[in-house]
Amino acid sequence: MTTATAQARSPIAPQHVDVKPYMYVFAGLLCLTVATVLVSYFDWSPWLTIFIGLAIATVKASLVATFFMHLKGERVIIYGLLGLCAVFVAVLFAIPITDSQANMGRRQPIAVVVEEAKPAAPALPAKALPATP
């Protein structure tokens, strides 16, 4: 505690941060954004489009995390925390999606369609229960 206090009171020395890598990452991110938009205009199979779209997003996100968020060279404890998160996120994705897909045959899926410019806003659903007896 005393050492910490001493540290805290010492004048802060300027530290030079090299910003050049950030600029490269920035350029990379911009290119990837353009790429992901372009890819979406190709009429590939939906699964391929989804896969490529998410792959590019993952690359972009990891660029931001690695360089902007300084995950590169971060303490092990942060890696551990994010690793744990990743495992649980994977479970959270895997189980409900598996369940929903496995249950496709037992559900009546609907087609979600967007009609252009509806004439009026839909009436609010009458959801409340009727007055209680």
């Binding site: 929903s100 559900r107 009546q108 609907i110 009436a123 659903p125 009458a126 959801k127 229960l129």
Partner: peptide, 18 residues
């Protein structure tokens, strides 16, 4: 989900949820 009928009244919710 789509097609709910609550106490005899069809729900206007558009459905699609689970």
């Amino acid at each position: 989900p789509a097609g709910l009928v609550v106490l005899g009244v069809p729900s206007t919710a558009t459905g699609g949820g689970q």
